[in-house]
Design a protein around this nucleic acid. Sequence first.
DNA 1: GCCGTTTTCGGCCCGACTGTTTTCAGTCG
Length: 579
Amino acid sequence: MTNADVARIFNDVADLLEIKGADAFRVNSYRRVARTIGDLTTDLTDLAARGELGTLPGVGKSSAAKIRELLDTGRLKQLDQLLAEIPASILDLLRIPGMGPKKVAVLWRERGIDSLTRLKEAIAAGQLAGLKGFGEKSIRKISEGIEFLERSAGRTRLGQAYSVAETMREAVAGMKGVRRVEHAGSLRRGQETVGDLDLLCVAADGGRIVRQFTELPYVSRKIVAGETKGSVLVEWSSGREIQVDLRVVPEASFGAAWQYFTGSKAHNVRLRERAVRQGWTLNEYALSEAATGKVIAARAEREIYEALGLPWIPPELREDRGEFDLKQTPADLVALEDIRGDLHVHTEASDGHATIEEMALAARDRGYEYICITDHSVSSTIANGLDPDRLRAHAAAVRAANKRMRGITIWAGTEVDILADGSLDYADALLAELDLVVASIHAGLGKDARTNTQRTIAAMRNPYVNIIGHPTGRMINAREAMALDVEAICREAARTGTALEINANFMRLDLKDQHARLAQACGAVLAINTDAHAPEGFEQMRFGVLTARRGWLSRASVLNTWPLRKIAAFVKRKRAKKD
DNA sequence: GCCGTTTTCGGCCCGACTGTTTTCAGTCG
């Protein structure tokens, strides 16, 4: 039973209790536990063994006992009892936009509807007619909701959502009377996937702006259109839709609104609790005195945080993961401007689409000081991996290009495969000829945690390996991370002087935020690389940096914020340590 | 169900929009 399994079960219990009509605060406490567990980077089994379950925020005696029951028996009596009353397939109904626990309960009690299939049949057969709360419009909305559910396939990856969001932001910015438009929501927080997009704008005539917004050419369906709020669906690729919300607010309350709509929900709840303790109230318009309505702060986010005795908290940290203990805004949080180069870059020599020079020029245009060319090794046949002779010739070509090129340094490296037994795809003597080595697992991801951990540790113990590429091998929305003891990897990375990559490609974002945070806490260095296969690939750096910021990484922990000579010393130090 | 510089009991965040058995409950973020 993994942490994710336990978290999912607590969420299921919350949903089922809600359908039963249980006290909302009680339901919420189950959700809180699920979230806490979902955020953990240590194994629940270890915490349970140390008797520390009760120290987790939101976990009391009752929840701790339930977690132990799950870990010991793999089951939860409470869940079994709930599922004896309510079929599990009913939980799917909650995923339909516009359907909440109350409506689901009515459908089930009054019409025996307990699955998406049954609901579709009932609508088609007109069986919902006369049901309380289900008028003609509601039923049509539900049909549309089911259709959306089938088309949207869940959450959208950050990189894809970002380009949709930018298109919509620019469209709104171009409307007459719009003075400011900003991203909010999980996109602004840099979450690896987003459910919907939130835009916030300042304009006098809200109703008109909302109307124009819902009539933009990208819009496939209007959901809501009021005086201050509009909601639409946008088809961003064939058959894939995402919801985009726009809120129009007066300039005087922009800060309050931006804070409010950036979230996260958990962060905002904590913030509003803080306000209430002062006798104040916080909403999207202002932080104000509850009794008199007198405004304390509204115009800027910073003013609101400061009034509540907090430093301004960067959006990426607003997840209720300890940011309320900050005494000041972290000044050294890594930022896009800190990145001096990219240490994981492919060319047409293996599976890239551009030459060494084209990649170097694109990097120089971005203001980079250096890149390292790291094409695939021989075992990655599908990626046209280089055999030793081709690698030597390629390295010579890189060095020749480096001599010709002004304004940027090009290093010759490799992305060498970590093989099934933990050995590497090239001999040490060959690796020793290179400036820097990235080592990655590309095959055999299905092995067990012990094997994968040992493979990675063996690679880190090689004196020539400087970076572990995409350490967990996950592909967001497509492939689970391989089984791996990430904490052991982080400790070994720190011990051996090996950097762990945050692969910035929005498909990967690997290491993920919480693992990056763990790595830094273990004393490991991280490298944020794009793994670019073409010049456009460098654009992905922003997503890697967002992930790093969500992992609270300081500039000093990120290898490629360092000047090149310091990276050279990092490489040299590890090579010198070999026995 | 959790939790305590108001509290071991009694609280627990806030407002827009929609549909509608028309005065507000349900949903959402």
